[in-house]
Amino acid sequence: MDDVMLNQFLLLSAILFSTGVYGVLAKKNAILVLMSIELILNAVNINLVAFGAHNGTIVGSVFALFVIAVAAAEVGVGLAIVLLIYRNRRSVDLDDVAQMKG
């Protein structure tokens, strides 16, 4: 514990990422899926900033900011879609939206 390692951050980010993936794949509720996507994006942000600090460059932070902006847009549109689905089907259960079956 006498030195800060890069891997600390990367592994934390990996945990967040995997949890997010699990949420996206296993959750029925569309809003929970959106939250899980936020987890994934945050994992990415941690990576970006950590690598930026590692390389002594500001670019990581800049890109993290961009990702945050894109995530905000994504949540807005995503929630709008969820609302639309809810309005049409009275449910946000993704198992009900299984229309990909040929």
Binding site: D3, V4, M5, L6, N7, Q8, F9, L10, A50, A53, H54, N55, G56
Partner: peptide
């Protein structure tokens, strides 16, 4: 990365 420190020289 193993035990590579976060803070490389000069960073």
């Amino acid at each position: 990365y193993g035990d590579e420190p976060l803070d490389t020289a000069g960073a």
